[in-house]
Design a protein around this nucleic acid. Structure first.
Lengths: 352, 352
DNA sequence: AACCGATATGGCATCGTTCCCACACGGGTC
DNA sequence: GACCCGTGTGGGAACGATGCCATATCGGTT
């Protein structure tokens, strides 16, 4: 015997139901329901007796039965791409806290970068009859699928269906432009961009911001300086090693997310390059390590927990107003200037 | 209109039920159930027809109804202390992946270091009738409560009820001993210990390991070098600043978790101390930043995702064998030697 | 011709909760 | 005394899926 069961005078392993409470309190099931939920009449003494009986038995209403009857659940699904990435972990933490404060239970699915997992999670959420879903989508499929089942979806961080599905994103374009402009104003012209892709809103907008800043600085995008890397540190590191070994290497790198930044940072360290004397680095998304390494890394900080919280808030509103206009919320970002960005080395000036 | 509803020929917002499928396929509900679940007879042509009808309607069985009828759910609850801490995030990721591979849905609760949230989560899990719960407990209450409701619990990382509840932990004692012995063998004798507490299994065991290693090296625990810090970076940093400013400061610090290590690390950097020339640092739990800062930080690495996965595996076994002996699984750790540990400075030798 | 087993399907009670409806009581009004 | 109201309670039908049991058909056996 390991776990003690049934502290109550019921059969072993049987959980008390509303019927048990009714019997113990000497009333009907209906009365117990009214007394405990507070909906409908119940005399004070009866209410009290029922509550005591419920507490004594350790009665907890069965959410399954309740949801089945009421046809609305108080749980929301959250799908993130990779919990091990602090960005998604923070986002989930923010969503979880907000959900809790609004009385929702969060069901979290970590797809671990697998498309299958994303679809499976969506189906599981339909099966669970969640009230709504918050997702950092990797394809338009999830939103379409859930939408066709009448489940409200909030796309967060990236958005595949603006205008149709609600979204919560950050100022990607502005953030990327500020970051790049910062480098331009330090004299850099050959600025590499490490980015995961340029098709989704996020990547596209960050690319746009980068491009605009270059244009404003009188430079243009050089295709060989734009690296579309895979979604992991190893690949980013490899690509960065290749690029930084070139004789005419860029004088600065803008890494469009924390994973890519880590790869670039590791490559720089391996090559023994000095930061920012040899090369400047700026990242989009301020991961914890960026303020711990030396030099510290200049980054576009986003309120990641706020992003998750805002998504849940939006979902809550959507549930209250199912037919309202769909809305995209844009959260502000801010450039945190640190040690990794400095003036363009004299030798490289004017060559770009 | 934002979300499209009811691609199927049903009423707006109505989700197809088994009855709709039965009607569409021209069979009874029982037959649909058998055809889709594969339990019981169903002629090949009928099975096919039913499956086609289900697919066409986008039918997804209602987990609520199924669970209500079967009285066993396929979801497990996971309670972690702080998703923003990479340790818990990795643990949750490991648990989630393992759960998914075994066909469970994970319901995650992040207590954010609040005791209330822990109890609320436990109650929510009872209400949800989860099959079992994996928890990094902060008090014995959760396990007792869930146990009294007949819900199997796996305590992970720390264990309040060994012998009663299953547990999955790491070799805290050995890890702490190895870490401390490493410092001792480098000549250190005045070794500070930063630890969150010394009462739970985790803290107690790490303290024991530290103490044993000192004894083996011919030194003893000096109470003023043992700091029981709060569970956040700021506090740890403050306490480290105080200690490292002392004239007879320790020559090495063993930080018993990644949060405390971060505080100590920041304090060291602020004071401009050289690592490891002035002070050596070793941490329990190898967080990502430890291999990125310079010098890199020597740490006791634990397989955090493995910890989460092992907990879910153990829970699965427990569900199959409810009355088996309760078991505590101990996972191995290994000391990763890096740049933050070096010989004890000559001046300090022999003063401890 | 009666019977059997195998194959295949439908009827129906059930899980725990909610909530509509019916009903019962006491007291006030006409 | 018939009525209606307000207050309080219980009966019972749902919600959607499952799975036991009854039933039906058919080929083969006794």
């Amino acid at each position: 015997m390991t776990t003690e069961r049934g502290a109550s005078p019921l059969g072993r392993g049987r959980r008390p139901t509303i019927k048990d409470v009714a019997q113990a309190a000497g009333v009907s099931r209906s009365t117990v329901s009214r007394a405990l939920t507070g909906r409908g009449y119940a005399a004070d003494d009866v209410r009290e007796r029922v509550q005591r009986a419920a507490a004594e038995l350790g009665y907890v209403p069965d959410v399954m039965a309740r949801t089945l009857k009421q046809q609305v659940s108080r749980s929301i699904g959250v799908i993130v791409s990779d919990l091990r990435n602090p960005f998604y972990a923070d986002l989930a933490a923010g969503a979880g806290a907000e959900a809790r404060s609004r009385g929702y239970t969060m069901v979290l699915a970590d797809t671990g970068l697998s498309a299958d997992a994303e679809n499976e999670a969506a189906e599981a959420f339909v099966a669970l009859r969640v009230a709504g879903v918050v997702v950092t989508p990797n394809s338009p499929k999830v939103s379409t699928y859930l939408g066709s089942h009448g489940i409200p979806v909030i796309e967060v961080d990236r958005q595949f269906a603006p205008g149709v599905t609600d979204g919560v994103v950050v100022g990607n374009r502005v953030g990327a432009r500020d970051a790049t402009t910062h480098l331009v104003s330090l004299g850099h012209r050959r600025i590499a961009l490490f980015i995961d892709e340029t098709n989704w809103t996020t990547g596209y907008e960050r690319y746009q911001g980068y491009s605009e800043a270059l244009a404003m600085g009188g430079a243009t995008v050089e295709p060989e300086l734009v690296v579309s890397s895979g979604w992991d540190v190893a690949d980013s590191r490899r690509r960065a090693l290749d690029m930084l070994r070139l004789p005419d290497r860029p004088t600065a790198v803008f890494a469009a997310n924390n994973v890519l930044a880590e790869g670039v940072w590791r490559a720089i360290a391996e090559l023994g390059l000095r930061v920012p004397a040899d090369v400047s680095l700026v990242a989009f998304d301020d991961a914890p390590w960026m303020s711990m390494v030396s030099p510290t890394v200049t980054a576009v900080a986003q309120d990641t927990m706020g992003l998750g919280a805002a998504a849940v808030r939006r979902l809550h509103e959507r549930l209250e107003t199912p037919d309202g206009e769909s809305l995209t919320t844009v959260l502000a970002v801010r450039l945190v200037t640190r040690g990794s960005t400095g003036p363009c080395p004299d030798g490289a000036r004017g060559t770009g």
